[in-house]
């Protein structure tokens, strides 16, 4: 009788353990799937950047450094393979594009260019979708992190290689830029 009770308890524990483990796997997979949505938008942004750079080059040739930064950030972002790497490199690309956008305010000719306007519109559309996909991804990440860090999930997580994962936020560079007041030039350009 006592043996049966012990066996029963062991079975219950293993069922409980399995369901907890499966929950962690499910949440981790959901986070990865959510990243696929982001990836679609990121790839479209990669396709758009060269066109944007080419268009800007014709009007603002002495912004070479800025354009180089954007191109390099794009190359780095395209080379990234893991989610963590992608998050970091894409943050840099976002920051570089933001910088370009601010600088372009100084070129009225460029701002009148139809092609440039269309590219800008496409880019802002992609950025909006990116923001939406990021919201979903970060929600999934929060849920996963909570499961990994709270008791009793943390017992299993520690032993089976589940760990806290990164959020996809704007990145420090971009956030700092957004906090700065915009520079206004009243004198001659």
């Amino acid at each position: 009788m006592a043996l049966l009770i012990v066996i029963g308890i062991l079975v219950l524990i293993s069922i409980w353990f399995t369901s907890l483990y499966n929950k962690l796997v499910r949440l981790r997979n959901r986070r990865q799937n959510a990243f696929a949505d982001i990836d679609v938008q990121l790839r479209q942004r990669h396709d758009l950047v060269p066109q944007l750079v080419d268009t800007v080059k014709g009007y603002a040739s002495h912004e070479k450094e800025l354009l180089l930064r954007v191109t390099e950030a794009r190359t780095a972002a395209m080379a990234a393979t893991t989610i963590d790497d992608k998050i970091k490199t894409e943050q840099q690309l976002t920051a570089a594009l933001q910088g370009l956008k601010v600088q372009m305010e100084a070129y009225p000719d460029l701002k009148a260019n139809q092609n440039f306007l269309q590219l800008q519109e496409e880019l802002s559309d992609i950025e909006n979708k990116l923001a939406a996909a990021r919201r979903f991804f970060n929600g999934a990440t929060t849920e996963y992190n909570n499961a990994v860090e709270s008791f009793p999930g943390n017992l299993i997580a520690r032993n089976f290689g589940f760990q806290r994962e990164l959020f996809f936020d704007l990145g420090e560079d971009t956030r700092r830029r957004m906090d700065e007041p915009p520079k206004i030039n009243f004198g001659n350009p």
């Binding site: 959510a34 949505d37 559309d125 909006n128 979708k129 923001a131 939406a132 996909a133 919201r135 979903f136 999934a140």
Partner: peptide, 12 residues
């Protein structure tokens, strides 16, 4: 389309 698409993306 854009509005709807963005909400759908953010809700997965």
């Amino acid at each position: 389309y854009n509005l709807l698409e963005n909400i759908c993306i953010s809700q997965g």
